[in-house]
Design a protein around this nucleic acid. Structure first.
Length: 573
DNA sequence: GCCGTTTTCGGCCCGACTGTTTTCAGTCG
């Protein structure tokens, strides 16, 4: 039972308590769950050191429950709650406009206890007979269930980001507007996004709100008032717009960027200082005088905090850091000097080497690594040793023609099930960079898989461990791997771990980046491009690294071409 | 259930919008 399993149990308890109408406890359970989720080491380790109650939000009662859960894998308290609340009711909370009160009411009045039964009841017009509910609520709930069924789940950061930027561009070009920004989890750069939030700062926002609702891709307007509008786009994505006066823009941007937990922490600080923080500004509680609000910087400063970049606003230590002026410098896109993982038409990519080099030049890169697959990945037309030798020559020639950009001849070599590499050592030694990746036998048990990966790291033949956990967001979880052990080996052998920038990978993920940074393991940003358009994914990797608190010094490809060459050559001896 | 530079008890962030109401509860972010 790992940290996320424990957190899942606590989240479920929170939902069940909420359905029962219990006040405050749900928040307490969720807070503890979140903090456990974000720990950078296994809970069992924390327990062994007797430091469980040092986790914020975990007190006496929760500490006992968590320990019981860890040692027995069971929790009678959860079983008791489950027996009191029908299973499907928790799922019903996912339906828009159905909260704990409504779910319980429907259960008691109509005997509804699942989303399916709720849908049937709504179709039979039985909801409108319940006291407090009417025709419109019934219709909204039905619509909500349909959206839930069709869309199911969250959107990738890499999908949501361009969608939101296009919306913002449309608003900017169709209406005069003082300030506008994406907010919410999208601005924080989470790897998946529930819905898109846009904030407008303008003293007369009526026209912008009308334009927002009139966006061509809008399928339905869900809510529309003088300061707020929500729409659903074709395809089911919900987009929320909020408008505030320009003088409140900074406070509102802070507020709507979140996270919720980060905001609560900030308000607590405000309360201690006799201040009130809301989306309109920071105010003296007694006099009501506005202290800050036009910019985010101003708000943080007035709370006695250093500015906190959006990506790390998760209430996982950043507020304390800001209080002590220890907010880390985070890596920026403009510091990345090249892409270290690109495929070409030699294996399963679709563009030739020359086109990749042109794109690298266009992006202002100093270098780009050509890293095609090795032969065991037959489905991807992986390269045999002979073909790889020929490709190296081709890459050198293309570099001569490219006029300036350095082409690193490399390989994404398979780490075979026994931990050996899918390419002879003498061939690897002639390359400029080697990424080792697992592409087969994902279902090994934890000990085996860890041994396999550590063997590759310890071989001295790879520079980078590619997409280290193998997850595909929304499709496949990470393979069983003892990441702390792997990071330990990487630190020992000077091997970098990749942040694969492909939208459905983002692997390492944010929290693992932080763990890597804490152990002094450098990360390597690679887009895993299979066509040159994919090279734009690099920014997703930068965002992920930032969410992992990584600075320029933690990222291999902030090195200039000559420093990088020196680093890599040093490993070749 | 947690937590403490007003508190070891009594708080727990705050506001917009909607629907079904005759003044507000529920949901959402």
């Amino acid at each position: 039972m790992d940290n996320s399993d424990v957190a899942a149990v606590l989240y479920e308890i929170a939902d069940l308590l909420e359905l029962q109408g219990v006040a405050f406890k749900p928040q307490a359970y969720r807070r503890a769950a979140r903090n456990i989720e974000q720990l950078d080491r296994p809970l069992s380790e924390v327990v062994a050191e007797g430091k469980l109650d040092e986790v914020p939000g975990v007190g006496e009662a929760l500490s006992k429950k968590v320990q019981e859960l860890l040692s027995t894998g069971e929790l009678p308290y959860l079983d008791k709650l489950r027996s009191e609340v029908p299973e499907g009711l928790v799922r019903m909370l996912e339906v828009p406009d159905v909260g704990p009160k409504t779910a319980m009411l429907l259960h008691q009045e109509l005997g509804v206890s699942s989303v399916e039964e709720l849908k049937a009841a709504a179709l039979a017009h039985r909801l409108r007979g319940v006291k407090g509910l009417g025709e419109k609520t019934e219709e909204r709930i039905l619509q909500g269930i349909k959206v839930l069924e069709s869309k199911g789940g969250r959107m990738l950061l890499g999908e949501a980001l361009p969608m939101a930027e296009e919306y913002v561009e449309y608003l900017k070009s169709s209406q005069r507007v003082d300030r506008i920004s994406v907010a919410g989890s999208l601005r924080r750069g989470r790897d998946t996004i529930g819905d898109i939030d846009i904030l407008v700062g303008d003293d007369d926002p009526g026209a912008v709100i009308d334009a927002f609702a009139a966006y061509p891709a809008v399928e339905a307007v869900l809510v529309k008032g003088p300061t707020k509008c929500s729409v659903r786009l074709d395809g089911g994505t919900q987009v929320d717009l909020r408008a505030v006066e320009t003088k409140s823009y900074g406070a509102a941007l802070q507020y709507f960027t979140g996270s919720k937990e980060h905001n609560v922490a900030l308000r607590r600080i405000g309360v201690e200082m006799g201040l009130k923080l809301n989306e309109y500004g920071l105010f003296e509680r007694d006099s009501g005088r506005m202290v800050a609000g036009a910019t985010e910087e101003e708000v943080y400063s007035a709370l006695g905090l250093a500015y906190i970049p959006p990506e790390i606003r998760e209430n996982s230590g950043e507020v304390e850091a800001a209080r002590q002026g220890r907010v880390p410098e985070l890596v920026r896109l403009d510091q990345v000097k090249g892409d270290l993982h690109v495929h070409t038409d030699w294996s399963d990519g679709s563009d030739p080497v020359g086109k990749v080099l042109s794109e690298a030049t266009r992006r202002g890169y100093e270098y780009v690594a050509i890293t095609d697959h090795s032969q065991s990945l037959k489905i991807a037309n992986g390269l045999t040793p002979e073909r790889l030798r020929r490709q190296v020559d081709a890459v050198r020639k293309a570099e001569d023609l490219a006029g300036g950009v350095v082409a690193l001849a490399g390989s994404e070599v398979d780490i075979l099930p026994d931990g050996s590499l899918d390419m002879p050592s003498d061939v690897l030694n002639d390359l400029d960079i080697v990424i080792g990746s697992v592409h087969s036998r994902f279902k090994m048990d934890r000990a085996e898989m860890t041994k396999r990966v550590v063997a590759a790291i310890s071989s001295g033949r790879i520079d980078v461990l590619g997409h280290p956990t193998g997850r595909l967001i929304g499709q496949r979880g990470p393979y069983e791997l003892d990441l702390p052990t792997v990071l330990g080996a990487a630190a020992e052998h000077g091997v970098c771990v990749e942040v694969n920038c492909f939208p459905d990978r983002l692997d390492l993920r944010d929290a693992d980046c932080r763990a890597a940074g804490a152990r002094g393991v450098r990360v390597s940003l690679g887009t895993d491009s299979h066509r040159v358009e994919h090279m734009g994914f690099i920014r997703l990797g930068v965002i992920t690294a930032r969410r992992g608190w990584l600075g320029p010094g933690d990222v291999l490809n902030t090195l200039g071409a000559s420093e990088l060459a020196k680093h890599l050559r040093g490993r070749r001896r």
